[in-house]
Simulated scan of single mutants.
Amino acid sequence: MPAEPTARELVDRFGQMADDDRFQTLRLLVPGTGDSPVLGPFLIATANDAAEDDLVRVEAIRAIPLLDFTEPDLAGRCRDTLLRLAREDDDWDVRNAAGCAVFDVPGAESSVEPMRAVLAAEPEEFVRDNVSAALNLFLRRS
């Protein structure tokens, strides 16, 4: 059985992979200790890439909360990205994933009020329902 690629190898090979391989790689991604400085910017960039397949972007978003956030400003950069995607992205799948994931990033309490404004403006009922559920779950855990 081949060894799992390192974070650097994954990032370096990602652009040469087919869409389905990129999707599967992110779906199965379990960041190791010390991978966050490499994977954090990569996952943010992948989530932000509107030219990328939406399922790949969603998997990048879902992997963000798995980071270890030992880098001082990584959590803030991730929250900012997720909030912006939840508010502005054209793809409802991406808005949905970002709106839910933001509550699993350290410091999420600062995202509560901005996400309430996002929810008020969200046109898709499915997204509103999912993100509202994630918000309510976060508030019950806090």
Rank of each mutant, 00 (worst) to 15 (best):
R95Y: 04
R87K: 15
F23L: 15
W92T: 11
D90A: 11
A117R: 11
A51T: 15
V56T: 15
Q16D: 14
E124T: 11
N48V: 02
F69T: 02
L43M: 02
P37N: 06
D12W: 06
D80G: 10
A134Q: 03
I61H: 04
R116D: 04
L67P: 01
V105L: 07
V58N: 04
F69R: 01
A18H: 12
D21E: 15
G15H: 12
L66H: 03
A101L: 05
A63P: 01
S36C: 05
T81N: 10
A134P: 00
M115H: 02
V127S: 10
E52C: 12
V30S: 09
D93T: 09
A18N: 09
A7R: 07
D54W: 05
L139Y: 09
I64V: 14
S111D: 15
I64A: 08
D129E: 11
L135H: 05
T33I: 12
S36E: 11
A86M: 05
L135T: 05
D19T: 15
T6K: 10
T6P: 11
L10N: 09
G76P: 02
E59R: 09
T70R: 10
G15W: 11
P41D: 01
C78W: 05
D21I: 13
A51I: 02
V112R: 09
G76F: 10
I61M: 08
N48Q: 14
L83V: 06
A97Y: 04
S110V: 03
A45V: 00
G40K: 08
A133H: 04
S132E: 10
D49Y: 03
A121M: 08
E113Y: 00
R84H: 12
R27H: 13
I61P: 03
L74F: 07
V102E: 10
G107E: 13
A121S: 09
T70Y: 06
E4P: 09
R77H: 14
F126C: 03
R140Q: 13
P2D: 15
A134H: 00
R141D: 05
E59C: 05
L55A: 04
F42A: 10
P2M: 12
V94G: 02
G99F: 09
D53V: 10
L10P: 04
D73W: 04
A121W: 02
T70Q: 14
E71V: 10
L119P: 10
L66D: 03
R87A: 15
L137K: 14
F14W: 14
D35H: 06
E125K: 01
L55D: 06
G32M: 06
T70A: 13
D104M: 00
V105S: 05
